[in-house]
Design a protein around this nucleic acid. Structure first.
Length: 490
RNA sequence: GUCCCCGUCGUCUAGGGGUCGAGGACACCGGGUUUUCAUCCCGGCAACAGGGGUUCGAAUCCCCUCGGGGAUGCCA
């Protein structure tokens, strides 16, 4: 199945349509990435549309943060609320007048009708259905209300919703680019559904198809949770005589418990990943690879490569569990392979947050430190711990180091180091001579030699290679640290 | 309950009738490098949900069962 079936007929247009009711969710980010990558691949137009018809939950702050997160991920769009375009406005709340016209048409043609049932009435109907163990479907109570009935309801102060009249016995076939042929019967849709709330605002399920048509969207790439909504949208587009886009429903991203990834699974917002120190390239890469594999089997791929190699028909049909471990691994790979200067820039805010005076540090020295410890980092925030030994004059030895420094051999080393650093050693020769001279005068070697030295100088038994760490710590600091431990050991 | 989707190692996946005694990656477990840790390298563990067909031959096609997920909102 070649993806852009219509590419020859018209230019391809795809869209990402977030609802600004919170942070950008990892699952939605993946949908955005798929749209972006497919758009890139086929040189299509990517439209960003904000679906903010739920006035109760939608906020402008959320929209701003979602747009920011998308940009951070490296996703760019060609039309959207922030940049405009020929098919705007791109915020549904700015398009209510447009939808009203379509609603009028539906009402006039008899494809929709006013419904005066209250939420309470509906709850009761649903409860009845549940009690009798039958599926709930709106029974069409208000389908054929007389003018007198309507007058009576309005006199009671009821404000109607608008329901779409679902035709009987109709078959809706969705030829999904990922799932294949999916068939729905109109009798299974759940009865006439609401398309306009009693406050006059339209429902997503209804206007999505209008906007897609008006914005000339050719391919709708979205989450699989929208698949059951699709027949409703198809029915509306038929009633309105609107063109139907191609559909590609992406398998969902699941949490470790196999349910749709949500807040209770922990970190699910892109924003939190950014804060923790995940690189946008890594998150992008990981999300794109969730449910897809390159032919070569390679996993670390640039957006360009992904765009080049991705095939909509190759996207997995089955849901994928979000694997934090693998994301971490991938992030570590990016941290290790980034150009040193670039990764240093990314690490700096985390060092600053940890309280280290990065702004007064020598850049060249900082880069050498980072190069030495980046291999230990899976996320940027790991740097604070691993670079700590280079950040201050004195490092307080940890419990293990303290314990080890108590034995007699260690004491010999402490004394000898103290003597050396205050006599024979200078800033020029200490780095190359310190360990050797201690070895010569104590005749200790191997672990017995290196570990105490390491503990004195770094406060820990673990860390980067000593011979590289020592010159970076520097003469003055080494001296202070040796003196500090020496005093402590008295 | 009903409708829809899905089922290959613990996880992400490759595979689409014979080349599969099922390949790669993460994780895990060994070993090497590092006199430490991490990196890096090498090796190992580990899967076609079950049952029926079709076929000379099925992980691959069909059916059923089971399992998982989604939808069933005056949310998107």
């Amino acid at each position: 199945m070649s993806f852009p079936r219509r590419q020859q007929e018209k230019t391809m247009r795809v869209r990402f349509a977030p609802s600004p009711t919170g942070f950008l969710h990892i699952g939605n980010a993946r949908t955005a990435i798929c749209n972006f990558v497919i758009a890139k691949k086929f040189d299509a137009t990517l439209v960003l549309r904000v679906e903010d018809t739920d006035m109760e939950r939608s906020t402008r702050e959320s929209e701003i943060s979602i747009l920011n997160d998308l940009k951070w991920l490296g996703i760019e769009w060609n039309e959207g609320p922030d940049i405009g375009g020929d098919y705007g406005p791109y915020r549904q709340s700015d398009r209510f007048d447009i939808y009203r016209e379509y609603t009028d048409r539906l009402l006039r043609s008899g494809n929709a009708y006013h419904c005066y049932c209250s939420p309470e009435d509906l709850d009761a109907m649903r409860a009845d259905a549940a009690e009798q163990n039958r599926p709930f479907a709106y029974p069409g109570k208000c389908r054929n209300l007389s003018d007198a009935d309507k007058k009576r309801f309005e006199a009671e102060g009821r404000t109607p919703t608008v329901r779409f009249r679902v035709p009987d016995g109709e078959t809706i076939v969705v030829n999904d680019l990922i799932k294949g042929r999916v068939v729905f019967g109109s009798e299974n849709i759940g009865g006439d559904f609401i398309i306009v709330r009693s406050d006059g605002t339209p429902i997503y399920n209804y206007i999505v198809i209008i906007d897609d048509a008006l914005m000339k969207i050719t391919h709708v790439i979205r989450g699989e949770d929208h698949l059951p909504n699709t027949p409703k949208q198809v029915l509306i587009s038929r009633a309105l005589g609107l063109p139907e886009p191609e559909y590609a429903h992406l398998a969902l991203v699941l949490g470790p418990d196999r349910s749709k990834l949500s807040k209770r699974h922990g970190i699910t917002s892109v924003e939190m990943y950014r804060r923790e120190g995940y690189l946008p390239d890594a998150l992008f890469n990981y999300l794109a690879m969730l449910g897809w594999a390159a032919e070569s089997g390679e996993e670390i791929l640039s957006p360009d490569r992904i765009a080049r190699e991705i095939q909509i028909g190759n996207l997995a049909k089955s849901a994928a569990i979000f694997d934090f471990q693998k994301l971490k691994w991938m992030n570590g790979m990016y941290i290790r392979s980034y150009p040193l200067s670039a990764i240093t820039d990314l690490f700096i805010p985390y060092l600053r947050d940890a309280g280290y005076p990065v702004d007064s540090m020598d850049r060249g020295w900082l880069e050498r430190v980072i190069d030495l410890v980046r291999g230990n980092c899976e996320v940027l925030s790991d740097i604070a711990g691993h670079a700590a030994m280079f950040m201050n004059d004195i490092v307080e030895p940890d419990a293990d180091a303290v314990a080890m420094l108590r034995d007699d051999d260690s004491k010999k080393i402490i004394d000898e180091a103290y003597r050396l650093i205050r006599s024979e050693l200078t800033a020029d020769n200490f780095a190359s001579e310190l360990v050797g001279k201690i070895k010569a005068s104590t005749s200790l070697k191997g672990k017995k030699l290196f570990m105490p030295v390491r503990a004195i100088l770094t406060g820990s038994q673990h860390g980067p290679e000593l011979d590289q760490a020592i010159p970076l710590i520097g003469f003055e600091r080494c001296k202070k640290r040796i003196e500090y431990i020496y005093e402590k050991s008295r």
